[in-house]
């Protein structure tokens, strides 16, 4: 399998879980086990758009229980003989090998996944300058060691915040930052702004006004209520990303 594989360095490994569960896009070659009309193939693929049930395959890293996964779209691209090329946008944890097998069952002839390329993982896509090969990493890192120019580092490494681009943000006061770094839940007075679309239980990123992520949290109130309340918890912490004492401690102790 080839394509987009975000690599998390040192501290940014703390957001690996977010990337793991983020939505993906793949381009897939499916091999049919019989001769089927193109129109029939398109029709069957169409049936798999929206929510599907999947049991993880025998060789998988998760518990094998029936799960629901969302298929945002399946775009038929082309077909040659028994090979079908399609693009699929889906929720994290969707097994494309299983999808091909199931498509084969519905089509009546059987099918298997022949080739797979990931074209998106959350916010990361294969278009754009930031997409690098292993050779690229080797080349640019060597060049950076020579002249230590920031621009060279930025050619192949990006801030972990880019990996959180699809997660709604809550921006907080400088004075609220260190308490969060010490594990305190986010309370209303610390909030400066919040993105729309947050519901109770949404994963949110707590940000400084400089755009650094302080922590990942779970919202306890929807956007509109966060804007209205003047006291109480608005988000409970899931993972702190910023080290303590990056910002000054301003709360009273004891």
């Amino acid at each position: 399998m080839t394509g987009v594989l975000p690599i998390t360095l040192e501290e940014s490994r703390k957001i690996s879980q977010v990337l793991l569960h983020s939505s993906k896009e793949y381009v897939c070659v499916m091999k049919l086990h019989g001769d089927i009309e193109e129109s029939k193939v398109k029709e069957v693929l169409g049936q798999f758009e929206d929510a599907i049930y999947q049991r993880p395959p025998l060789r998988s890293s998760v518990k094998r229980q029936l799960r629901i996964r969302r298929i945002y779209y399946i775009d038929f691209l082309e077909m040659k003989g028994r090979n079908v090329l399609f693009k699929v946008g889906c929720e994290g944890g969707t097994y494309i090998r299983k999808l091909c097998y199931d498509v084969g069952e519905i089509a009546g002839c059987g099918a298997h996944m022949q080739e797979l390329r990931r074209t998106r993982s959350g916010p990361f896509v294969e278009e754009g300058k930031d997409f690098v090969t292993l050779h690229g990493v080797y080349f640019w890192f060597d060049k950076w060691k020579e002249d230590k120019k920031r621009g060279i580092l930025q050619k192949f490494i990006q801030p972990m915040e880019n990996g959180l681009a699809l997660i709604p943000k809550i921006y907080v006061r400088d004075s609220a930052v260190d308490a969060v770094c010490h594990g305190a839940n986010l309370t209303a007075p610390g909030v400066l702004s919040i993105e729309n679309g947050v519901v109770k239980g949404s994963m949110v990123a707590i940000q400084t006004l400089k755009g650094e992520t302080v922590a990942l949290a779970s919202a306890t109130l929807p956007t509109m209520e966060v804007l209205e309340v003047d006291h109480g918890t608005v988000a409970v912490l899931k993972r702190v990303l910023m080290p303590r004492s990056t910002y000054p401690k301003v709360w009273k102790s004891g």
Partner: peptide, 27 residues
């Protein structure tokens, strides 16, 4: 925000920039 504390993600010192970095790798 007080410029004395923290850094904009793209302005982190090199070593810190790497430690808080992600590579969008073409596997």
């Amino acid at each position: 925000t007080d410029p004395k504390y923290g850094h904009k993600p793209n302005e982190r010192p090199a070593e810190e920039y790497i430690r808080y970095g992600i590579i969008n790798l073409d596997k």
